[in-house]
Computed example of a mutant assay.
Amino acid sequence: MTITEQVQETVEQADLVNKVQSILDFLITETSELEDEREHAVKTNQPVYHQAINNNIKQIYVTTSTLLAIRNDIESMHDDIQRHINKEKSASVQSANSTDNA
């Protein structure tokens, strides 16, 4: 097993994409609930409560955006690792072929 394949296995075992996605799913649920509460705060004329909810929604937005960027980086890293593995395999096959031809 090559070093690159070991790295790939380690990354896959960490399952980072699914962990990040779980947090994103939770935040989406929280945002939905906050939007319902914000609507109630507007209807009952509670501006302080409304503003606090808006602040929470903004914080969730920033957190969600950051997690999406992390998820994209992880997916890109997976693609890079796979590309390196394919290069190593190709180089290994070429090396074996050149040895056989000698």
Rank of each mutant, 00 (worst) to 15 (best):
I74G: 02
T10Q: 04
T66H: 14
E33T: 04
K19A: 05
I23Q: 11
S92M: 14
Q13K: 12
S65Q: 10
I85V: 10
E5S: 09
K43I: 13
V11I: 13
I60N: 10
T99H: 03
Q59I: 05
K58R: 06
L34C: 05
R38E: 10
D25N: 04
A69S: 08
T66F: 06
R83N: 12
A14F: 00
N54W: 02
R38Y: 11
D15G: 09
K58P: 10
V7L: 09
R71S: 05
V20P: 00
T29Y: 07
I81C: 06
E9A: 13
H40L: 15
N18C: 09
I28D: 10
I57R: 01
T64H: 02
V7P: 00
Q21Y: 05
Q51A: 10
E75N: 15
A69C: 07
E88A: 09
T66A: 08
Q46V: 13
A91C: 08
T29A: 13
I60M: 09
I60D: 07
Q46L: 15
T4H: 12
Y49V: 14
Q6T: 14
V11N: 02
H40M: 10
I74L: 02
E37Q: 11
D36S: 10
H84R: 09
A69F: 10
D15N: 07
V62M: 06
Q21W: 03
T99F: 11
